[in-house]
């Protein structure tokens, strides 16, 4: 367990966030703080709004009510989004990793990672590639620099996707079920990289069904259901003494599966 000072200002602050798809409410008043170097893991049954919550934190979804402050900027306030140019700049500070990897299919592993730094940071190809190779080394894929995404396994793709996000030197990383599309034997290699990031002090918000990861790495576990936070707290409390019946039944369902 890391010791995280709680006095610091949150890097991500969500207040009263509401979002619906058509008539279907997906988020119904979410409050959540993520402080620097904290790892916040969001769990809950599918359809509970976890992914939507995460996507509201970098503007891929627009919340209708409530407010998101991230990296000292107000991303959305009562349905008003940050203007396009500032939103793009903000996204450079907020890395995102997707369930379905979303590597750029037409670019090599190296080009996937260097595209952002070259187009947005004005880095030369040589500069960007040096950084990219260092990141690939970190995620254990130095030998795959010239491979095309189609030739990689799911676990390798996701590790490249993490490297691609890291190349922008984000202040926060959002993980949207990063291991849910992986074969079971490939989950470990991705979680290992995420643990490494956490140990280096990266601020992370992770939506996942990996309860062992939550127990081991999370500073705060947030349980969501039906668009609301059921309860949140340190993993020891959530997993061994949950106060809410909803949490108990969800954990039971998840844990009996494995």
């Amino acid at each position: 367990m890391k010791v995280t000072p709680n006095s610091t200002e949150p890097i991500l602050r969500i207040r009263g966030l509401c979002k619906s798809f058509g008539a279907q409410p997906v988020l119904q008043g979410i409050d959540l703080d993520v402080r620097p170097s904290q790892v916040v893991v969001v769990i809950g049954p599918s359809g509970s709004g976890k992914s939507t919550l995460l996507r509201c934190c970098n503007g891929l979804e627009q919340a209708e009510a409530g407010r998101v402050d991230i990296c000292s900027q107000t991303l959305v306030d009562q349905g008003r989004m940050l203007p396009e140019a500032q939103l793009n700049a903000l996204r450079e500070d907020v890395g995102m990793v997707f369930q379905s990897f979303n590597l750029f299919a037409h670019l090599s592993v190296l080009d996937n990672i260097t595209l952002g730094p070259r187009k947005l940071r004005g880095q030369s190809r040589a500069q960007a590639e040096m950084q990219a190779r260092a990141l690939l080394d970190k995620v254990g894929l130095a030998h795959k620099a010239d491979a095309m995404p189609a030739s990689l396994s799911g676990g390798q793709k996701q590790r490249v996707a993490i490297a691609r996000a890291l190349a922008m030197q984000p202040r926060v990383m959002l993980f949207d079920e990063p291991t849910s599309a992986l074969d079971p034997e490939l989950v470990g290699e991705v979680l290992q990289v995420m643990k490494l990031l956490a140990s280096e002090g990266m601020t992370m918000m992770v939506v996942t069904h990996e309860m062992d990861f939550a127990k081991e790495v999370a500073d705060v576990v947030v349980v969501m259901d039906a668009g609301m936070v059921v309860e949140s707290g340190p993993p020891e409390t959530i997993f061994s003494q949950p106060t809410q019946e909803r949490t108990r039944s969800f954990l039971q369902a998840i844990l009996s599966r494995s």
Binding site: N88, M96, N102, H106, L115
Partner: peptide
């Protein structure tokens, strides 16, 4: 796939940059 545009936008590319560098090269094929 929609995810290609989302991934491009999530690293900070504008919609024009994403279209030119990510979507069109794949669409042309």
């Amino acid at each position: 796939d929609r995810g290609q545009m989302e991934a491009a936008r999530s690293i900070g590319l504008s919609s024009r940059q994403a279209m030119l560098n990510v979507i069109l090269p794949q669409a042309v094929v």
